[in-house]
């Protein structure tokens, strides 16, 4: 399988702070990679460099064979080929669910209004929101908003979607509906990079797990290996913290 994403010696600094430290790795077409690690480990920074929301200072990143950070490339064309789902959904609040999904097909892909509208309706149906097509974001729950955001990413018809903590801002009862849409996409062969703390999702859906800390990918393994026998001491500590939150048993209720 050819590489969908190819990170080559990527380095990034915020001033003196070394946010990404020589990150090198690949994601193959159709793979689902879950990125986990403690906060501040560089997961979000890494995923945001993949569509150039963040600049890098060293190395190269290829997505679908295109050098994303090359000077002079039309970044808008490149970005249109990469779906991105945010922690805070970032729906456009002045547009209805349908209009949110239609925007990229209309403005970037050059579809007619009728085509874009039909595409949007179909995608909203697919994420289980066929009955809320003309709702405004403010009228939707967090889980529904995030599903609209996924439909918006799907409307770009890209083979790759990046998820930056897609369920972290959701109330617990809404996490499942978003994860199930993501599982469906994974089953359909979508290439996905998912930054998440949902270890259940990782175990079930991921083809590989990247464990990041201090701006490095410390571990890259199959989910079964990662959860049963993490190699790196920091991965072991992270897993024990996530899976058995310390002090949970001593809470007074």
């Amino acid at each position: 399988m050819p590489d969908m994403i190819d990170l080559q010696h990527v380095n990034k600094w915020y001033g003196q702070y070394h946010a990404l430290n020589d990150v090198t790795n690949q994601v193959k077409k159709g793979e689902v990679v879950v990125v986990c690690g403690p906060s501040g480990s560089g997961k979000s920074t890494m995923i945001r460099t993949l569509n150039r929301l963040e600049p890098i200072q060293g190395g190269r990143i290829f997505v679908n064979g295109e050098d994303i950070h090359a000077v002079g490339r039309d970044i808008n064309v490149l970005r249109a080929g990469i779906g991105f789902v945010f922690q805070q959904f970032n729906l456009f609040p002045h547009l209805s669910a349908r209009e949110n999904v239609m925007l990229s097909p209309l403005k970037v892909a050059g579809m007619t209004k009728a085509e874009a509208s039909e595409l949007a309706a179909g995608l909203l149906e697919k994420v289980g929101l066929g009955h809320r097509i003309d709702s405004m974001p403010a009228q939707l729950s967090g889980g529904q908003q995030q599903r609209v955001a996924i439909a918006r990413a799907l409307a770009q018809k890209s083979p790759l979607i990046l998820f930056d903590e897609p369920t972290s801002a959701l109330d617990p009862e809404m996490v499942g509906e978003v994860l199930s849409v993501m599982k469906q996409l994974a089953a359909e062969g979508m290439t996905m990079v998912v930054v998440t703390h949902e270890m259940g999702f990782a175990q079930e859906v991921a083809d590989r797990i990247w464990f990041m800390d201090a701006g490095q990918i410390l571990e890259d393994s199959l989910p079964a290996e990662f959860f049963s026998n993490p190699q790196h001491p920091r991965a072991r500590k992270f897993l024990s913290d996530v899976l058995e939150p310390r002090g949970a048993a001593t809470l007074p209720y």
């Binding site: 808008n76 970005r79 249109a80 991105f84 805070q88 970032n90 456009f92 990229s104 770009q156």
Partner: peptide, 12 residues
């Protein structure tokens, strides 16, 4: 996030 989302879907 509004500008980021708008740029992420490919808008100039």
């Amino acid at each position: 996030g509004q500008m980021e989302a708008a740029r992420s879907i490919g808008l100039s």
